[in-house]
Write a protein that binds this DNA or RNA. Structure first.
Lengths: 190, 190, 190, 190
DNA sequence: CATGAATGAGCCTTCATTCAT
DNA sequence: TATGAATGAAGGCTCATTCAT
């Protein structure tokens, strides 16, 4: 009956938090985040009871955003290599398109303030990839390796590429290609 | 002549900083670091004029420590594959032996407070690898790729393995082996 | 016609306030009081325009509640000593029966936020005792002393007994008896 | 070797705290206390790590101050009645001379933030009175009653007198006398 | 050089109160 | 009338840094 929580404000807060966390890490100040989101300091705590809550929800939101991005153009009917290449491309493009999201996610991934259980939930979002990879194992296209190892591998490679090629579009394209070769060499059988 | 700076205290401070940064990231407090090092709060600033100085010097010290570790048993007369495998093993072993050093380095690598020029200096420490790799290119053992790309690749893979296999010695060995296969697949020609 | 204020909610708020004030003093938060009363934060301010209003009304309500308790079994036809003893017993029993009410009253009695005029009103509730005491003076049973002094005396003694014997039923009975002896010795002529 | 803690500042802080607590109770703000003491906000926390520490130490300091005041002119060679009368007078005079100390002590006595163990220590300061009172019991001058009951009695009566006669010197003298009669009547045998 | 007291900006959070719904 | 989102002041406390000793 009272004013409803505004999804708009929640988003503004998460967006502002993304930017601040991208540069200052988990040390980003709630005051700056609130101001950047255009709301009063206290309002932040209406939406996120605690700074840790904000950080954790941001972490999940970013993971989920990335997942959505990867799935958007996912080629359901492509072969294994095509599917994995799509994921690789998606990773790189997401990071290049939203550098702050990537930086924020990177910082949070290293932070003690994200609960272990949430870090797990973050991983779990990628469980959808299960099938592709399992299929790769069965058809013998991929070397058999534990799933977390494989997803960690993609993640690490993509992150490295984005980090290394930061602010350099040409290098980015070069590394994206090199990275794909490396990745495929790393996981394909033979 | 006044008492000279004590190398011992400097080291104690860096060691304490390593531990604090490992858990709290760049937000680690100078007070706690000083106390853990067994010196007074103000003493820290005799050795490091600024917290940022401390952080940057710690970053370099850790990179250098890692480098020293890698070079210790480096097989100068082995073939390319042997040399690179030694580096891989070294990376993993260093991280497993000094988890706090690795965690601290990881946190600092992501922090805004490490100057770009220092991040470059950090990379440069690995320039010694130039020769091995160039040799690999010439003999055709390695696919030709930019040096920073290659070192970033090793780094990223090793970090992923250590992170993923945290606190699980068995998994660590498994991943170390898998990681090596992946790495070699990623960089070897054909 | 609009919905009228609900007496039930008002009471719930005062009851909740009693509990909160008992433990946190005047620093008790309106939010917690509202929640404990089962109403929304804003609703509290429909019934009490200001936190100070709430506190002051609570103060009066508690005084009045105590007064009612004292009068319930008041022996109108007893002699002076019997009447005063009844008051004494009543005081102690009220405090033992409703420890939160007593604690809250104690806290509020010390608080700056209760207006002086209300503290006087609080005292005035006991004016009904006028007659008993005047009678005591006339018949020479009581030493002549100003009324506020006498009521303050009873109050202080009872409060001390309750406070000292907190959570110890046996001690409470002992102190109740001792207190009565002391009180009577303090006020009776000769 | 560094600047030593200044006893002067510690006292200034306790004095300032006394004044603030006298009017605002345990809700007194550390900032106001620091400012009133003429030191920076942070300095307060050099001397008292926590607001609760400040409050508890203030409580003990006030109790101790009162005790010192009572003992100053204590008539060691007087009879029981003389000794107790001296205590009574001392109580009243202390409260009249240092109204803020008394108000602060009153507020703290009711506050949840003073630990139970400190409240006990507070009581213990009065253990010195043991002997007088025991002597009173033996010689039959005093009715036999538990010590905490007796000290509570004196305390409560004195507090009531001071509170009731606040800001009225004439009334104060009158109540002081009446209070003594009442007290003696309350505790003396027969 | 070493110490740790002193400082005040800044942090996260709570709160009383207002007001759109 | 009842609700609870919105607000920004204020609170307790921490911190990097300075400086008297």
């Amino acid at each position: 009956m009272a004013r409803p929580l505004s999804e708009e404000k929640r988003k503004a807060l998460l967006t502002a938090a993304t930017e601040e966390v991208a540069t200052s890490g988990a040390a980003a100040s709630t005051i700056k985040i609130a101001k950047k989101a255009g709301v009063a300091e206290g309002t932040l705590f209406v939406y996120f009871p605690t700074k840790d809550d904000l950080l954790n929800q941001l972490f999940l939101a970013l993971k989920s955003d990335l997942m959505g991005f990867l799935m958007k153009d996912y080629p359901i009917h492509a072969d294994i290599q095509g599917k994995i290449r799509s994921l690789w491309t998606g990773f790189i493009d997401w990071g290049a398109t939203y550098p702050n999201k990537r930086k924020a996610l990177r910082q949070l991934g290293v932070s003690e303030r994200i609960t272990d259980s949430n870090k797990d939930v973050g991983e779990a979002l990628f469980d959808n990839l299960h099938d592709v990879i399992e299929e790769g194992f069965k058809t013998g296209v991929l070397r058999e390796q534990p799933l977390p190892f494989l997803s960690g591998l993609i993640n690490a490679l993509a992150d490295m590429v984005l980090q290394t090629a930061l602010d350099d579009a040409i290098k980015l394209d070069q590394y994206k290609a090199l990275g794909w070769q490396a990745l495929w060499g790393a996981i394909a059988r033979k």
